[in-house]
Amino acid sequence: MILSESVTLKPRYQPQASDTCIEVEIIQFNLWRQMPPAKRLALASAATRGCRQLALSGIKKRNPQLDSIYLKQEFIKATLGQEFIKIAQLLETKLVMQDPIWLAAKIGNILDTLSIPYYVGGSIASSAHGEPRSTQDADIAISIRKEQTQSLIQAMQSEFYISDIAVEDAVRGRSSSFNVIHLKTAIKADIYLIKPDREYEQSQLDRRQQFYPDDRPELTFYICSPEDIILQKLICYRMSRFQSDKQWRDILGVMKLQADSLDRAYLQHWSSQLNIASEIDRAFSESGLN
């Protein structure tokens, strides 16, 4: 298989993985580009469920004597971490297999009902706008007022583990986020608070897009724009001291797929404001856009 003569790669173009044939990668991105975001997220969902199912099957094979409670406990250890088995509520229900994309839609519906603006970011957003991949949890940014906190807790507490103290700390500015865990599926969502006085955070909210799969309208939710997930991932990459290959691969995946449709002026403006200008330039080069 060879590249079409019309395809000219820039000198600094980098493949998504060292063992990836560039010709095959170009074809793969062309196929993904022809898909709607819902189809790309369906691929990510299938990959995530597959990983979770493999983890569960491995636990069952190693421990055939475990009952449903201890089976879920071992699954929580493997997917969330040892510290989460201390949450008794998580062990009171039989494990149901789902994925973070389903969870994002479920939480999005709750937030819409409470008139709390939000958008989904993280690897769900990068899979919708770029290379689909599995993900462990959902990242959701919300714009919540103090008087809405109790309504949110009450709306979630029957199906989720949610800490009143953690929510209060985030709302009062003592922390930047809190976690919720869906009790039956043991999937975690990281909830980040949007500060109204931070211009870039508000910009992301203003530019959110509605994700609406025609075949599964119950999975409708708001997602951040391609440009904003690139910038978010660049910030995370910087926070990792430029060591996170996963973040960098997500960045290049979105840029390669979105290509000329990206708002370069927006990316250049905010990368300068956020002190990641050199990283955005590198990303443009390695994705073949410079």
Rank of each mutant, 00 (worst) to 15 (best):
A186W: 00
A186V: 05
I187S: 00
I187C: 02
K188T: 05
K188L: 14
K188Q: 12
K188I: 03
A189Q: 06
A189I: 11
A189P: 07
D190W: 05
I191D: 09
I191F: 13
Y192W: 12
Y192V: 06
L193Y: 04
L193A: 02
I194P: 00
K195S: 15
K195T: 11
P196H: 04
D197W: 09
D197P: 01
R198A: 01
R198E: 12
E199T: 14
E199C: 08
Y200D: 00
Y200S: 02
Y200I: 00
E201N: 04
Q202P: 01
Q202W: 07
Q204D: 04
Q204Y: 02
L205V: 01
D206V: 02
D206K: 07
R207P: 01
Q209M: 14
Q209E: 14
Q209I: 15
Q210D: 05
Q210C: 04
F211K: 01
P213A: 06
P213V: 08
D214T: 11
D214E: 15
D215P: 00
D215I: 00
R216C: 11
R216M: 06
R216E: 12
P217K: 02
P217Q: 05
P217M: 10
P217V: 02
P217E: 06
E218S: 12
E218R: 08
L219R: 06
L219E: 14
L219S: 04
L219W: 11
T220W: 02
F221G: 03
F221P: 02
Y222G: 08
Y222H: 13
I223F: 09
I223H: 06
C224R: 02
C224D: 09
S225Y: 04
S225E: 04
S225H: 04
P226W: 09
P226S: 13
P226I: 07
E227Y: 06
E227L: 05
E227T: 01
D228R: 03
I229L: 07
I230Y: 04
I230C: 06
I230T: 09
I230F: 03
I230R: 08
I230E: 03
L231D: 07
L231M: 11
Q232W: 05
K233P: 00
C236L: 14
R238C: 12
R238S: 10
R238A: 15
M239N: 15
M239S: 13
S240P: 08
S240D: 14
R241E: 13
F242S: 14
F242L: 15
F242R: 12
Q243K: 15
Q243H: 10
S244A: 07
Q247K: 11
Q247W: 06
W248F: 09
R249H: 12
R249G: 14
D250N: 06
